[in-house]
């Protein structure tokens, strides 16, 4: 009765070989077409069309309840889509799983869980380990390297509830690094972190970019958008604007996205003025 998959099923015959932007689809990390998500009667996302360029840091920006996290979750099949199609490098998600890393919001897990920081990072490698196999030494070492890379090497043996919020976020980031994906989704990676962590995350984002990876992150702090991200996707139920930060992150588009929230706009205007 509920036809959620008919629209998402993609057969080779009706998959266009090129994206709307004219690129071959396998060069487009994420192509979202007509994505609509509704919880019961309420639309949460509405006809979203969006193609992410490869090798860029992309911020999803919008007011509370605009559907930013839902966009990521719907792309990753974590919430059901009402209609629409999502392709990763030209193929549906279930065939590209190993290319995609996901950093959920920090609140989404139980931090009392009896695992160490290293254990959490090792989980990022599970997709490559295979069923019923123990985690081999090379995976353990990769995880440790990822942990060191985010500056958390000294905390490998700590239980995760004994880490600060920023350190927890860095553990999550290390887990994503350990996954070694081509496209990363991050849900509010900067939420509630200390300055050192913020710096570390930015450094890692830049490293990922120079490695040709694509990062799509939900971001809350308008002031830092121009500084941290190359591209921006302004969302308020639908895509208000998308494109390179310099041309898209304008006060006019922000006005459209955030409406009359003057305090936020003032912040953003301040940020823009200081950048240019």
């Amino acid at each position: 009765m509920i036809d959620t998959h008919a629209a998402t099923d993609v057969t080779s015959t009706d998959t266009p070989a090129v994206s709307r932007g004219g690129l071959p689809l396998d060069r487009v990390p994420l192509a979202v077409h007509d994505l609509t998500v509704a919880y019961y009667r309420k639309p949460v996302l509405w006809d979203v069309d969006f193609e992410a360029p490869e090798g860029k840091l992309i911020a999803i920006v919008g007011p509370n309840g605009a559907g930013k996290s839902t966009l990521i979750k719907a792309a990753l099949d974590l919430v059901p889509r009402t209609s629409g199609r999502v392709l990763f490098y030209g193929k549906p998600y279930r065939r590209q799983r190993q290319l995609i890393g996901y950093v959920p919001q920090r609140e989404s897990v139980d931090w009392d869980f009896p695992v160490t920081a290293l254990d959490v990072v090792v989980m990022g490698r599970y997709g490559q380990v295979g069923w019923c196999r123990p985690v081999g030494r090379q995976h353990r070492e990769a995880a440790r390297a990822a942990l060191e890379h985010v500056g958390m090497g000294d905390f490998a043996g700590r239980q995760i509830s004994q880490l600060s919020g920023g350190q927890q976020q860095r553990v999550f980031l290390a887990r994503a690094l350990a996954q070694d994906a081509r496209l990363y989704f991050m849900d509010e990676p900067f939420a509630g972190v200390d300055a050192a962590t913020e710096k570390a995350i930015v450094r890692i984002l830049h490293e990922l970019r120079s490695g040709g990876r694509t990062v799509i992150a939900v971001h809350h702090d308008l002031q830092t958008v121009p500084e941290y991200f190359d591209h921006v996707l302004l969302v308020n139920l639908r895509v208000v604007a998308a494109g390179p930060t310099a041309s898209t992150f304008t006060s006019e588009n922000l006005q459209k996205t955030f409406g009359g929230r003057l305090t936020l706009l003032d912040q953003a205007a301040h940020a823009l003025a200081s950048r240019r």
Binding site: D49, P244, T250
Partner: peptide, 16 residues
């Protein structure tokens, strides 16, 4: 320009 997402110029495209 204000009506057409500037992103159309780049790879990131807004609504058609």
């Amino acid at each position: 320009a204000q009506d057409v997402p500037a992103g159309r110029a780049g790879n990131v495209s807004g609504r058609r």
